[in-house]
Design a protein around this nucleic acid. Structure first.
Length: 805
DNA sequence: GAGTTTGAAACT
DNA sequence: CAGTTTCAAACTC
């Protein structure tokens, strides 16, 4: 919708809605008193108008994109209404769900109510089909909206918001609610959805709707089909549910997931009669029961995650996949809603978004500080250190995605992000809650725009997204335990409370994949962790800063030495290699894919990325050296051959055949406050998001694609952020990507990026394809309309700028 | 998987 | 700040 419209909506007082027929209708329908949940609007409650009361913030979110909105069809009165409500601060954006065919919605409630209304509501963008269309069936809906997940069109917008599609067909049509919490979760869903869509429903996608309508395409025209899961794979409970759902009038579609979610939420608390809800009725009781059973069995917090992971893994049947995807979405929602419901203030959707530096889905692993910061800055999730870490798996994933030509926005938030707003501390969630969240996903704004549907990626993503997934445990592979993409520590004596511990250093809690002993880096010992962290920071404010900060900018703007700020103290100091010749991972510079700088005290430096003496090896030399040095890694790389096929693309601008190493110094052009150091001081604006976090994505990506150097975000973001609340990512400051990466030596002597960079990249980089990392708009503090200020142009974003190789 | 090497982190 | 020790990752076998 147009900006004016949005504004209009935003400004629409709740009262208007109250006056609207729909509002009245809904009120009448629901015998249940509206539940007020601030953080989220649980699907279960969606049927009640009041539930949306807190959505206003969502709508106000800066994320709204005018462009996108234009797509939106008609605005439904409800939209306004919803906006009025405070959904939660967290709501970043919502993408509209175009009216998909009725069945299309992942979650749908069928209401027996007599009126027919189709309402689609995206919290952020709230798109609603006006009541006019009420009788309108899905088919009638004009165009679907694009989802962020990867639709090309969406690139522009960062999405961290809660996305909610509310579709009401009172009468025969089911009422469907799509609720995507935001950020990570949403992305997860999107990934899953897209993935499924692309794989399974390519035709559908392309048919009528065009690129943007992936989601919609996912949804079968036949609403029923949507709900039907592959019985073979589905659990009994689900089966029963779906069947029942179908049974209801043939046209009523019930979203099992929604129900489950709803049920889950309600079960523990109130156990409301779902059937009562205006929107939910037919299907629901049994399914709900089933669902409830399921949920009861498992820990609430973990359940959603597990389910998600399981679903992700099962992708045999397209049909199944659809179901799976939807379920994932739903579950996710469910988990969210649960959290919201139960943890109330504790859970902030945004929080869930935060990325863990290393593990993709370990929200629980996030350290308290980070969590806080995350809450404060939704967009920022990646710990800088995470960037440094290399994980092949992730690489693979990332690469895969990249290869797909997807645009991945990986906003990295520094582990110890400083919360922009101290006030948001309240948002901090309990660790338990966080567990459910998928940090990586969340924070990382991982938007994949795939030109080619990335099919491969899906699994990976799913895996990452789902902590529970079995694959997770692959963790230690030959490379040292990164197989999962999540590199985990193996500390024995440090109790994981020292920088020796990668997890600790990355600002994440140790998790299952870790092999640490006597670990204190766990939520249980949060206080200890924090105290230790503070201590370390007091000693060295930069201790938690990323080892290597690379900025596309830095590369681009070589001239400004002054501005360069060392990303981390460590790097400031530079490496101190004696025997590795800076050709092994022992060397942080090498590991980070940057050249050594003057600050390095290394001996016999042969850093392929650039020597402190300014020497740049020829491409051939580099290649050979790399081969020699990294033979091992190559082996590992095999895994991603397909994915890695894409050669690293270095910006031609820079490619003169030589790689410009980015030394830490170089990269740090911007005087940036290290985010980490500021952990304790939440008040400071956060700083960085280097990669977004997900650390998973970002970090690995970066690592593997070292040449690219996304870390720029850090700088960019940081600088920006500091200045104003606008997420750095969103800011136009950098123009990076387009230009390509330039690596400048600290002295700026080095220049010439390698051409393909292919051979040069450190082992980790090999697989790197050209990734367009977009800095995910960290969602700026609610209320500020980023879109206007910074139209989210991923391509321009710092990340995006950095071309990933 | 165990042992060695390495260099950062921590300590003095 | 420099030297030493501790530590865990990286690496090798």
């Amino acid at each position: 919708m147009d900006t004016p419209e949005r504004a209009k909506i935003a400004g629409t007082p709740l009262s208007k809605f109250e006056d609207s027929p729909i509002y009245n209708f809904i009120n009448n329908l629901s015998p249940i008193q509206p539940v007020k949940s601030i953080d989220s609007v649980p699907i279960a409650h969606t049927h009640q108008p009041l539930n949306f009361a807190s959505l206003s913030s969502i709508f106000s979110s800066p994320h709204d994109n005018p462009p996108r909105e234009t797509r939106f069809l008609t605005r439904h009165p409800f939209t306004d209404y919803f906006k009025q409500e405070n959904f939660s601060d967290n709501v970043g954006e919502s993408s509209l769900c175009p009216e998909v065919s009725d069945a299309g919605r992942p979650s749908g409630f069928t209401s027996s109510s007599q009126e027919n209304c189709t309402m689609t509501c995206s919290l952020n963008e709230a798109t609603v089909d006006p009541p006019d269309e009420c009788p309108a069936l899905p088919s009638t809906f004009p165009q679907s909206t694009q989802y962020y997940s990867g639709s090309p069109d969406h690139n522009v917008e960062p999405c961290l918001g809660i996305k909610m599609d509310l579709k009401l067909d009172v009468g025969h049509t089911p009422v469907e609610f799509h609720f995507v919490q935001n950020g990570v979760e949403r992305r997860k869903v999107l990934f899953a959805m897209e993935d499924g869509v692309q794989e399974n429903l390519p035709l559908e996608l392309n048919k009528d709707k065009g690129v943007g309508c992936v989601w919609e395409s996912l949804i079968p025209d036949d609403g029923q089909s949507l709900l039907i899961f592959d019985s073979s794979t589905e659990s009994e409970a689900h089966k029963g549910v779906s069947e029942k759902a179908v049974d209801n009038d043939g046209h009523s579609i019930v979203s099992l997931l929604s129900n489950c979610t709803e049920n889950a939420d309600h079960l523990q608390k109130t156990k409301p009669d779902i059937s009562h809800g205006p929107c939910v009725h037919n299907v629901n009781q049994d399914p709900s029961q089933n669902c409830s059973k399921v949920f009861e069995k498992e820990d609430e917090t973990d359940h959603a995650t597990k389910m998600l992971s399981d679903m992700c893994h099962d992708q045999v049947d397209s049909h199944q996949q659809r179901g799976m995807r939807r379920r994932c979405l739903v579950f996710e929602v469910a988990s969210v809603s649960k959290r919201n419901m139960y943890s109330d203030s504790k859970l902030n959707p945004l929080t869930s978004l935060s990325f863990k530096g290393k593990s993709v889905c370990d929200t629980k692993n996030l350290k308290p500080e980070i969590r806080e910061s995350l809450y404060a800055l939704p967009g920022i999730g990646l710990h800088l250190n995470a960037l440094a870490t290399t994980s092949k798996d992730r690489m693979v994933n990332m690469e895969t995605l990249a290869s797909e030509k997807q645009i991945i926005s990986i906003p990295c938030s520094v582990g110890s992000l400083t919360s922009t707003t101290a006030g948001r501390n309240s948002l901090r969630k309990s660790s338990a809650v966080e567990k459910d969240l998928c940090p990586s996903g969340s924070e990382v704004d991982l938007q994949i725009v795939s030109d080619d549907a990335p099919k491969d990626a899906t699994p990976n993503i799913c895996e990452e997204l789902s902590q529970g997934s079995p694959k997770k445990k692959r963790r230690k592979s030959g490379n040292g335990g990164e197989s999962d993409g999540c590199k985990r520590c193996n500390c024995k004596k440090s109790k994981c409370l020292k920088l020796y511990c990668e997890c600790f250093a990355a600002g994440v809690y140790c998790s299952e994949p870790c092999s640490c002993q006597g670990c204190f880096n766990k939520p249980i010992h949060e206080e200890t962790v924090l105290a230790t962290r503070r201590q370390i920071e007091s000693r060295n404010p930069l201790a938690f800063a990323p080892k290597v900060i690379r900025t596309s900018e830095s590369g681009l703007e070589m001239g400004d030495d002054d501005k360069k700020t060392p990303a981390s103290a460590r790097h400031k100091r530079g490496c101190n290699c004696k025997k590795s010749n800076c050709l092994k991972k022992y060397c942080e510079c090498y590991q980070g894919g940057v050249g050594c700088s003057i600050g390095c005290r290394c001996e016999g430096c042969k850093n392929l990325f650039g020597r402190k003496d300014g020497f740049l090896p020829r491409f051939e030399e580099l290649e050979q050296a790399e081969k020699e040095a990294n033979a091992c890694e190559k082996e590992n790389e095999s895994l991603g051959d397909d994915q890695q096929n894409t050669s690293i693309q270095i910006d031609e601008h820079h490619s003169s055949g030589h790689i410009l190493p980015i030394t830490p110094y170089q990269s740090c052009r911007l005087s940036v406050e290290l985010p980490f150091s500021s952990i304790a001081s939440s008040t400071t604006s956060t700083k960085l998001s280097i990669g977004r976090s997900p650390a998973l994505y970002g970090s690995h990506m970066l690592r593997k694609c070292e040449m690219v150097l996304p870390s720029p975000k850090l700088e960019n973001n940081v600088s920006t952020v500091v200045e104003d609340d606008t997420p750095a990512i969103l800011r136009p400051t950098v123009s990076p990507t387009t230009t390509g990466i330039r690596i400048a030596s600290p002295n700026q002597k080095r220049v010439s990026p390698p051409h393909g960079g292919v051979g040069l990249s450190p082992p980790s980089r090999k697989g790197c394809r050209k990734l367009i990392l977009r800095s995910i708009p960290s969602f700026p503090p609610l209320g500020s309309d980023v879109s206007t200020e910074h139209p989210v142009n991923y391509s321009n974003s710092s990340f995006g700028s950095s071309t990933v190789i």
